[in-house]
Design a protein around this nucleic acid. Structure first.
Length: 428
DNA sequence: TCTGGGGTCCTAGGACCC
DNA sequence: TCTGGGGTCCTAGGACCC
């Protein structure tokens, strides 16, 4: 028996915890570079701001009513960790599924709905984040329950099984469950994206109920095993297990759109170095090493009248490493002839591939298993953890407070929970 | 003027092995 | 005229997720 708990309008709710003046306001959190709406308060949704909508496409009359914040992933990540700590304290088996969602194993817990209502109350009291919970026999049904709970929370009283932000589909009679499935468009299901939804509709399958009851061999043949699993899960047959231990990463990517178009190759080179250093920090934080490095750059796809260039390049390393300097030297060599003069670039990125755990590597008879100096890197990481990111680093990143390629973040809130400088003040 | 940044899995096809 | 029967690995493309 599964539950899915997620934070309502998560990023917007995080902003509101420490900025009470935002409560009740139509609030939108923008993506990096202040581009698209990636979280909306209920009030902003009511004004018609869509998920992932570019903010400049929102009519000025609406935009004028919005409170706007730039994405602050440091804050959201820390709030997420606090919620996860509460869940782990109370529930024996928890899967952290995304920054704002966790699956819980409720097997053996009596009074499931009451238990979850209490849990969500505690999360609200201890972190200030409102949440909703869906309960079901499978992960897919728990996800659907969560959708029901959220819909009902916005329209109180419309559905009795979803009292207090919790919807327990496992407590429904079969006819009542059929009613919920029949009312759910197939495209709203977890695992059914826009492409498959359109294809399913073309086959006459428009609701979750119709998908559940469709011919299984037809779904398997037309869409493959992924949707076939979703179909079985809808029928109450668990196909997806709780994954308590996060599987090891296969790749790590750091990429950014630039705040403006950049032609200066030196500036872009500093961006590559900055991204590479950040990627290696993430790599070491997970205790992994990388065996291959890639870089890419893109011109501005929204300006088709400008000449376009999308170079990319990957290199295998002689031996695995987690040393930023080895990766930096590798991408320095890759950059020869990589960018072309006269092109204005808008985005660049670095990715690390073929990641592995150093303990599991096949040793080389004639050489050390890895290259680089892990001790030095660990020391730098420890200093940066203690005194703030960027306290020590490498010169290739440029060390400018406002680099030419830097992001636009016009409305960034303070790091209330992770920086002493930004601690909220209580006025006596 | 302005348009995000990460990830995963599955499948098909080709190259290669004995 | 007739041309085996297994495998693995890699890559690209296409879905999906938040």
């Amino acid at each position: 028996m599964f539950a899915l708990i997620d934070g309502n309008n998560f990023y917007a709710s995080c902003e509101r915890v420490f900025q009470p003046e935002l409560r009740g306001q139509p609030l939108v959190v923008l993506s990096n570079n202040d581009g698209c709406a990636i979280a909306r308060s209920d009030e902003a949704k009511a004004l018609g701001v869509r998920m992932a909508q570019p903010i400049h496409e929102v009519p000025p009359a609406i935009r004028g009513q919005l409170a706007i914040r730039s994405a602050n992933f440091t804050l959201y990540g820390d709030m997420s960790a606090r919620i996860l700590a509460i869940l782990r304290e109370v529930v024996p088996r928890v899967e952290s599924y995304s920054i704002d969602e966790s699956f819980l194993d409720l097997t053996g817990i009596p009074e499931r709905a009451a238990f979850c209502r209490k849990l969500r109350g505690r999360i609200y009291r201890w972190t200030g984040i409102p949440s909703c919970v869906g309960i079901g026999a499978t992960k897919t049904l728990a996800k659907l329950g969560n959708l029901v709970a959220k819909t009902v929370t916005r329209k109180p009283g419309s559905y009795p099984a979803a009292l207090g932000g919790v919807a327990d589909l496992s407590a429904l009679s079969p006819p009542a469950l059929v009613e919920v499935l029949a009312a759910t468009p197939v495209g709203e299901l977890w695992g059914v994206g826009p492409r498959w939804a359109a294809k399913l509709r073309g086959m006459g399958i428009e609701t979750a109920l119709q998908l559940r009851d469709a011919r299984h061999d037809l779904i398997l043949e037309t869409f493959g095993v992924v949707l076939a699993r979703t179909q079985r899960e809808l029928a109450g047959e668990p196909c997806l297990a709780l994954e308590e231990v996060e599987p090891a990463r296969q790749q790590i990517m750091v990429s950014r759109s630039f705040g403006e178009r950049v032609e200066d190759h030196k500036a872009i080179s500093e961006a590559f170095a900055t991204f590479a250093v950040r990627a290696c920090e993430k790599l070491r934080a997970r205790g992994l090493v990388t065996s291959a490095v890639g870089i890419f750059a893109n011109t501005d796809p929204f300006c088709p009248e400008l000449c376009q260039h999308h170079p990319q390049c990957t290199t295998d390393l002689p031996r695995p490493t987690s040393d930023s300097r080895v990766v930096l030297e590798t991408i320095r060599q890759m950059q020869r002839g990589f960018l072309k003069a006269g092109f204005a670039y808008k985005k660049a990125g670095v990715w690390l591939m073929d990641l592995s755990c150093p303990d599991l590597l096949q040793p080389d008879l004639f050489a050390p298993i890895t290259i680089g100096d892990d001790g030095l890197m660990q020391t730098m990481d420890a200093i940066n953890r203690r005194f703030g990111r960027g306290t020590v680093g490498v010169g290739a990143t440029g060390w400018q407070a406002r680099p030419q390629w830097g992001m636009r973040q016009a409305n960034l809130s303070p790091n209330f929970t992770t920086s002493l400088r930004d601690l909220p003040r209580a006025i006596c």
